[in-house]
Each structure stands twice: as structure tokens, then as C-alpha cells.
Design a protein around this nucleic acid. Sequence first.
DNA 1: AGCCTTTTGACCGCTGCGGCCAAGGCGCGG
DNA 2: CCGCGCCTTGGCCGCAGCGGTCAAAAGGCT
Lengths: 337, 337
Amino acid sequence: MRGMDYVTSLFARKVVAAAGSGIDAAAMLAQVGIDPDAPWNPGQMIPAARYYAMLEAIAGQIDATDLPIRTGASMRLDEYGALGLAFKAATTLGASYARVERYARLWTSVVEYELRPTTGGTLFILHRAGDRHLGMRLSNEATLASAVSIARQVCPVPLSPVEVLIRHPAPPRVAAHEAWFGCPVRFGAGLDAILYDDETLARPNILGDEGISHYLAAHLDAELSELTTEPPLVTQARAAIAQALSEGTPKMAEIARGLGLSARSFHRRLSDHGMTFQTLTEETRRDLAEGLLRDESHSLAEIAFLTGFSEQSAFTRAFKRWVGTTPASYRKRLSHG
Amino acid sequence: MRGMDYVTSLFARKVVAAAGSGIDAAAMLAQVGIDPDAPWNPGQMIPAARYYAMLEAIAGQIDATDLPIRTGASMRLDEYGALGLAFKAATTLGASYARVERYARLWTSVVEYELRPTTGGTLFILHRAGDRHLGMRLSNEATLASAVSIARQVCPVPLSPVEVLIRHPAPPRVAAHEAWFGCPVRFGAGLDAILYDDETLARPNILGDEGISHYLAAHLDAELSELTTEPPLVTQARAAIAQALSEGTPKMAEIARGLGLSARSFHRRLSDHGMTFQTLTEETRRDLAEGLLRDESHSLAEIAFLTGFSEQSAFTRAFKRWVGTTPASYRKRLSHG
DNA sequence: AGCCTTTTGACCGCTGCGGCCAAGGCGCGG
DNA sequence: CCGCGCCTTGGCCGCAGCGGTCAAAAGGCT
């Protein structure tokens, strides 16, 4: 998933639910690769382009003006995994948003968030590159609404921003937007952002706790560090190894050649990063296995094959050591949240 | 630290602080291997026998009757690391104690805890093997007091047990015990335990949260699974490798022979566990490095040597990849909590 | 252009990994 | 007791990774 334009399937499911009975829900979910009858898989990612297309298809069937607001309103912190927990446990609302600013990149490369002090308070800015066609417009509105929705879940008193700024032109009606946000919503602004006054951001969260917050941040920092310190060459090698694993364990020389290096030079580069090719191969196998287990269309035998194990039993044993449970058990746990 | 009789240095520091000015604090801490002038190292473990001896030495200098109570009263949940966080985030007090029952073994092999339903409520039992000489008696009282102390930190209302049971005979005075626990304290009982009524154990904790609790439990479960599913042979191999690393990377055949196996059979055993010798060696190196970094008497150069790296720079690179920060930075972070 | 430093790539000894096969040990049934 | 089947063990070996060595190539600076 790294480096590719994916978003979490959570938004797709929520949008379809918020759209109500005016659309064919099953067809919409199938359009983005979600099995409508399967239990929800929290880790499933879907291509961003397909998500935008689905939003546009929904807008073609029903009046979607208020859809982003209803979608955002339905978001729950516990549906955001570790980031949601970190948001909840942060000591103040401002610290919560700082968590999003720092760690959202662990989940998606499509958007980035920024906290920016300004006159009258602090802006929580949503950066999303690309053309502002209808799908992305709806998606941006939903994202801003969800950012306020989760804030309301950690705040001990009713909460509204000072103002919401949206870059694209206004839809036909904005009454629902302003009613829900509880503040003016300015379309055609220079950026997509929520403006909070600093008193609001300094308010302690209901479940804020320094110890838990620190623990969660340490774990997220470790993941982030891996993402940001890894040389591009190593990342490319991971992708090449993952691609080659279905044909058995790739040889270092093959991977090196694919990257334009001799085996010895490739070896040196890995060593500079404190790593060996065998370790890289094993990590890649593990990551690939965990990812494939989230995608329920692959059988366990198929995953063993795709991860380059000559026997399913060897895959089971390795996976059990990595994660602590068997692949089947792990998948069962994923399905039931 | 695995499999050896160690306890956390936290208790030693707290006992010395609770003992007040009647003892030579620096000498007592030095007796168990704690540098009195260094910042506190939360991960430092000390031999249990030494801890008991220190308690007895303190009792030889001051009246230690109330010392366990004062020690227990000073314990803070945030000083218990991940277990303290899990205790705090559990949804009820009973679930908090269930966390201790399940995960305490990750920290020490000296004691075990058990929740046992009985008439009038549920017993939280402390199991500690060995002779009940004075050091252990004081330690048991302090442990029970701390178990109540941390419960009082998650409970929204004042909390007392129904009764406290202690196996060893009563000290000269028990008034401070009963005043502090807020219930009868029965010495000479059949076991060491706290009796709570079930209504108390069902009470929601102040910061109880299902999502956070589940996340913390999952992480602790992964650690526990590693501890409980690892074959003894693999554990022994780890110890042998750690021992041999200061002489450079040990060869598989040497380690195998030390365990009474041929290299091929040893290799098979590892494979049955889903592991290779190289992976085992690397994990051992990492564990050893992290442990040695907690012990401030070793320089970074020395740790690189003890973990079998031919150059400190190679150690730094590998450590950075493992943990996300340099060894020096990691140590600095440990010192400042 | 010359010089110095760094990087590259070929080579190679050592060791781990895993397949293969024969020998030995154990348990069970006749 | 003996024969048979199954499982474990250990030796052997081909392949590939790991890391040291050295000469050649590349890059940077004056």
C-alpha cells in the first residue's frame, strides 16, 4: 500500500450508508472492490480514484449536497484504529489534531494535514492534490466534517469551529453545512481548513491521559520513523521482492539488477541501512502476508504461495511466530474487529 | 532477564524513599545495584534476593512495621509502564485486576497473581514461592498495599476491600495496616490476598475505554504469546547466543552442540518454530542491546562489543533500524522517562 | 590534466539454509 | 521375539547470502 493512492474503505462504507435507500448500495460498494455481504474489514484500502468515481456515481443518482455532512457526522473515533485512540487519549484537543497532523501519513498518501497558527486562532488544513472534480469535492467536505465530528467526541462541552473554509465553489445549498458545523462555511476560499480559536484547542479532552498518550505516540513514532528514514532504494527493493515472491524466494542478484546495481553494491546499501537482504526479504514476506490476509479474496493456500513459501505449513509456522497467532485465527480476529 | 528472579527497581526506590531519613538511602540503593545519583531507569531490574536483603537491612535500622504500607501508598499507576496503562484503561476494576493476573508475568517470574471467586466476593491472590523470612514478608505486604493503591487511582469513589489476608504472622502492630486498607487485615491466614465484593469490581474505571483497552491488550498479548509459545530449546539458544556474542557472531554448530544437538537437528527445531538461526541471532542481539542500554554502567562501545558487532557504527545503524532512533538517543529517552 | 577519495564490481572463503538419504530408535502387532 | 512402519537424527551437499579484499572506475577538487 505504501506510495500508492489508496484511502481507507471506511469512508466508502459510511458514504454508502449515509446515502440511504436512494442508491444501490451493493453495486456501489462492489464498484470500489468491497464485498457488500462480508463483515467489515477495518484495514482494507481502496484506490482513491475509484472512491471518487463512486461518489460521483452516487451524486448522479441522488441529491448529494448534504451527503458529506451526513457522512462526517457518522464517523466514530474507534473506527480510526490507533490514530483514533491517539486522538482520544491526547491531553487537549489541539494535541489531538497534532496527532492527526503527524501520523495520518501512516494511513494514506492522498491527503496531508497541517496545523497553522493564524489571526483569530489556528487552522487545521487539509491538503489534497489533484483536480477538484465532483468526487474530490464531496470527499473534501466529508473529511472536514469528520474532523469536527471526532473532535466533538473528545470534547466535554458542545463544540463548533470559528469558521470552515472550502476551496471549491459552493454547492446549490449550504444551510445544512452551516447548521451542522455551527459556524459560517466559506466556499471559494484559498484552502480547505477548519479554524478553531485557541481556547477551544487548549481544552482538556474527556479521556486525555499523559501516560496512555505517550505510549501510543511512541508506537506510532516507531512506525513513522520506519517510513521516513528508509532510503528509497530499500523501499523499491521491498516492492520488487513482494512482486517476485510468488515465484519463490528471489535472489539478491536478481533484485539488485532490477534496481540497476550489482549484488555487492546492493548489499552495501542495505548494510548502510543496518539491514541484510534476508531480513528485508522476511519483513517483506510478513508485510505482504498481513496485507493479503486483510483481503478476503485470497485463500490461505494462495497467500502461502504469494509470499513464497513452498508449503502452507511453513507459512503457518512463520506467521505464528511473527504475530503470535495462526493466519486463520488472525483473519478471524480481523473480521470481528 | 527472562527466567531469572528479578523484580523491578521501582519497589526498591519507593521503599528507600518511604523509609525516610532513618537509613542511609545511598548505601541501601547501592546494595541492590542502583546508582543513587543517576536518574531513575524505569526498566532496570534487580535480583529479588538482593531486594529482600535490603528490606531486612532497613528493618535492622528502623522500625519497619508500617514501611510496606507507606511504600504501597506511594505507588503510582504511571510508574508501572504498559501494565499500568492497561490497568487504567480497562473498563472496570475487575478487568483491571484481570490485566495484572494475565500480564504480570511479562515483568517478573517471582510472583503470580490470581483472581478467584469466593463467598462474599472475589479474591485477588498473590502467589510468591520461597521462605517467608522477614524480607519477603515486608515485600508481600508492600505488594498488597500497592495493589489497593493503584485500584484507588482508577476508582471514581473512595475504595476499600472487604478484607486483606496475609499468610505470615502479624507484626508488632497492625493499626496502620487496618487504618490504611480501611478493612480488617487477617494475619496467619492461608494465603496472601485481597477480598473485594463483586459490586466494587464491577464499577467502571474513571478512564476506562474499550478501544484503548483493547489496543493495549493486543500488544501485551503479542508479548505474552512470544513468552508462552516459545519452546524451551529456543529460549536456551537465546541465552547461549547472548553469552557467546561478545566473542563475535556464534556459529550455529557451536550453539547446537552446546544444546546437545547436531547442527541439522537444531536447525530443524528452529524451523518447526518458524525461525532461522540468523533471525534468532538478530533478535537476541537486539534484545541484549536494549537491555544493556538500560544499564547505564555500559558504554555504547562496550555494548557494541557485547552484542557482537565488529564496529560501533554497524551497531548504531542496526539499532537505528530496529528501534527508529540511535542508541544514544534511545538511552537519553530512557533516562528522562 | 593530475591527484586524491569514494564507489563499484568481481572474486572468494565461510556459514547458513534446506533437500536428500541412510541409519537408528521406538512402538505395535503377530 | 521378530518384523514392519514411522519418526527422528545426523551427515552430506548444492546453493546463496554475508562480508573482506583488491583493482578499476568514477567523481570531485585544485
